[in-house]
């Protein structure tokens, strides 16, 4: 048996309520492996924010998740509008989300900052007009999980 897991999800761009599916699935798997609750929470938040971002800005996309002994790597890919100014987008509160989206309580400009805050490594590869690929890494604490 190999000690690595690869999961891939399609994130439906038309459905807010569908966002969170991948996040919930990852939580379940990490819990079964016995990863500590804090790490699980960090992964769940990163994934959820990533899913929501793809729904709001890019009409959906794909999420690939790799889990091994070191930690979790999440690769979120979309064919959306791309990010013109990454530095600006990383600022808390900055958002290009439309009014309708904000009325729903999304688009507060915390998505990317949260992903940065809760991951150990974050890489954004984006091109205006083509799309965005965000790679997030959350490392397990040394000695694996404690199950708590």
């Amino acid at each position: 048996m190999s000690a690595a897991i690869h999961l891939s999800y399609k994130v439906d761009g038309s459905d807010f309520t569908g966002a969170g599916t991948a996040s919930a699935a990852i939580k379940r798997i990490l819990r079964e492996i016995g990863v500590d609750m804090d790490t699980i929470r960090r992964c769940a938040i990163c994934m959820y924010e990533g899913e929501i971002n793809m729904v709001i800005h890019a009409n959906g996309g794909t999420a690939d998740v790799y889990i091994d002994t070191e930690g979790v790597k999440m690769v979120l890919k979309d064919n959306g509008p791309g990010i013109a100014d990454v530095e600006q987008a990383m600022q808390e509160g900055f958002s290009t989300a439309k009014e309708g989206v904000r009325d729903l309580g999304f688009g507060a400009g915390m998505g990317l900052p949260n992903m940065k805050k809760y991951s150990d490594e974050m890489l954004i590869d984006t091109e205006v007009g083509k799309g965005t690929k965000v790679t997030l890494i959350v490392r397990f604490p040394k000695g694996g999980g404690d199950g708590a």
Partner: peptide, 21 residues
């Protein structure tokens, strides 16, 4: 009272999770 853990050993648990998927 954990009831959702595949194995006490982390590496074993990871292998089991991979097999489940």
């Amino acid at each position: 009272a954990p009831a959702w853990k595949l194995d006490d050993d982390f590496l074993e648990a990871l292998k089991k999770a991979a097999r489940i998927e």
